[in-house]
Amino acid sequence: MTTNAPQPEVVRYTAFSDTPDGGNPAGVVLDATALDDSDMLAVAAELGYSESAFLTPSPEGLGGQEGRTYNARYFSPKAEVPFCGHATVAAAVALAERIGPGELVFSTRAGVVPVEVAQEGGTIRVTLTSVEPHIEEIADADLTEALAALDWPAADLDPAFPPRIAFAGARHLVLAAATRARLADLAYDFARLEALMHRLDLTTIQLVWRETATVFHVRDPFPVGGVVEDPATGAAAAAFGAYVREFGLVPEDAELTLHQGEDLGRPGRLTVTLRAGDPRVRVSGAGTRIS
Rank of each mutant, 00 (worst) to 15 (best):
E46C: 05
E136N: 11
D21F: 15
I124K: 00
G67W: 00
A235I: 12
E229R: 04
A166N: 00
D253Y: 01
R98L: 00
F222D: 00
R219Q: 09
D39M: 06
F247Y: 10
P231D: 02
H259T: 09
S58F: 05
L186G: 00
E80K: 05
E120D: 13
T204C: 12
E116H: 06
G100R: 06
E137Q: 11
L147C: 06
Y74V: 15
A254H: 08
E66D: 04
Y74K: 07
M1V: 10
I135Q: 05
C84V: 09
D36I: 14
A87C: 13
R282S: 09
P114M: 10
G225L: 08
V113D: 07
P20C: 02
L128Q: 13
P279L: 07
A168V: 02
L183R: 03
G85A: 13
V115H: 07
E51K: 09
A170E: 14
R266E: 05
T127A: 02
E255C: 03
T233N: 08
D201E: 11
G121E: 04
M1I: 06
R269T: 15
D18E: 10
T271W: 00
A91N: 09
P101T: 10
I124P: 00
G234D: 14
A94D: 00
G268L: 07
E80P: 08
V218G: 12
T214I: 08
A276T: 08
E229N: 10
D31L: 01
L143M: 02
E66N: 04
E229K: 06
Q7C: 11
N4Y: 10
A32K: 04
V227S: 11
A45T: 06
A87Y: 08
L274F: 02
L256G: 01
G23F: 14
G121F: 02
L128W: 02
L186P: 00
P267T: 04
R180A: 14
A53R: 13
D37T: 01
H86N: 15
D39P: 11
V115E: 04
A90M: 03
S52T: 11
F240I: 01
A160T: 15
P162E: 03
E66R: 04
P251C: 09
R125F: 03
E262C: 07
R109C: 13
T127P: 05
P25N: 13
G64N: 08
P25I: 14
A168Q: 09
T123A: 05
